[in-house]
Simulated scan of single mutants.
Amino acid sequence: MDLNEFVVGNKNEYYNLANEYFNNIIVEDYEHEKFNAVISKSISILIDHDFILTPCVEIRLNLLQDQKEVGSYFLYVNKDKEFIDEFLIIY
């Protein structure tokens, strides 16, 4: 089974993992009010990236406040679902 098939078969686990990591961030440190909703957006396999030097899985969550997208959270993990990096972007 290749990585793509593995990710597709376990996408809910990847989204749950991203939600767990996101919930561990202290959002108040980013001078923004609480988000009304966190929506699972996408899962991608990165092979070549400027900032992430190893192939990995990127999980993206959209952050909503009053039904408006106000940010994105990205979690990068390896094939064993081990943490590589994360980014929180607030618009």
Score class of each variant (00 low, 15 high):
Arg60Val: 08
Phe35Asn: 10
Cys56His: 09
Tyr76Trp: 11
Ile25Gln: 08
Ile84Gly: 06
Ile39Met: 10
Ile25Met: 08
Leu88Cys: 07
Phe83Lys: 06
Glu28Trp: 08
Asp50Trp: 12
Tyr30Gln: 07
Glu33Gln: 13
Ser44His: 11
Leu61Ala: 02
Asp80His: 09
His49Pro: 06
Ile90Trp: 15
Tyr21Ile: 08
Glu82Trp: 04
Leu88Tyr: 11
Ile59Met: 03
Ser44Gln: 11
Asp29Ile: 04
Ile43Gln: 02
Asp66Asn: 10
Phe87Val: 15
Ile47Pro: 00
Pro55Asp: 06
Phe35Lys: 05
Tyr73Ile: 01
Cys56Gly: 02
Glu82Thr: 10
Asp48Gln: 12
Glu28Arg: 15
Phe22Val: 04
Ile39Tyr: 10
Phe51Met: 08
Ile90His: 14
Glu33Trp: 03
Ser72Phe: 04
Ile89Arg: 14
Glu33Tyr: 09
Asn24Asp: 15
Gln67Asp: 14
Phe51Cys: 05
Glu82Ser: 10
Pro55Asn: 07
His49Lys: 07
Ile89Ser: 15
Lys41Ile: 03
Tyr76Arg: 11
Phe35Ile: 06
Tyr76Ile: 08
Phe83Ala: 02
Val38Ala: 06
His49Ile: 06
Glu31Tyr: 14
Val70Tyr: 06
Tyr76Gln: 07
Tyr30Asp: 08
Ile90Glu: 13
Gly71Pro: 05
Pro55Ser: 10
Pro55Glu: 06
Val27Arg: 14
Ile84Val: 13
Cys56Asp: 02
Val70Phe: 05
Asp80Thr: 04
Glu69Gln: 11
Leu75Cys: 05
Glu31Leu: 14
Leu61Ser: 01
Tyr21Arg: 10
Asn24Thr: 15
Ser44Met: 05
Leu46Ser: 01
Glu86Leu: 11
Ile47Ala: 04
Val57Thr: 10
Ile89Phe: 15
Glu28Asn: 15
Asp50Cys: 04
Val57His: 03
Ile47Thr: 11
Ala37Pro: 00
Lys41Asn: 12
Ile52Val: 15
Glu82Leu: 11
Glu82Tyr: 10
Tyr76Leu: 06
Lys81Asn: 06
Ile59Trp: 05
Asn23Cys: 08
Lys41Thr: 05
His32Ser: 14
Leu64Gly: 00
Gln65Trp: 00
Tyr30Ser: 12
His32Asn: 14
Lys79Pro: 00
Phe87Ile: 14
Glu86Trp: 10
Ile45Phe: 12
Tyr21Lys: 12
Tyr73Gln: 01
Phe83Gln: 04
Tyr76Met: 08
Glu69Cys: 02
Leu46Trp: 05
Val27Lys: 15
Tyr76Ala: 05
Lys34Pro: 13
Ile47Gly: 02
Glu31Asp: 14
Phe83Glu: 02
Asp85Tyr: 06
His49Glu: 08
Phe22Lys: 04
Ile45Gln: 07
Leu61Phe: 03
Val70His: 05
Val38Gln: 05
Phe35Glu: 13
Ser44Trp: 08
Ala37Leu: 11
Asp29Gln: 14
Asn78Tyr: 05
Thr54Asn: 10
Glu58Ser: 12
Asp48Ser: 13
Ile89Thr: 14
Glu86Ile: 03
Arg60Trp: 00
Gln67Arg: 07
Leu64Val: 02
Asp85Gly: 02
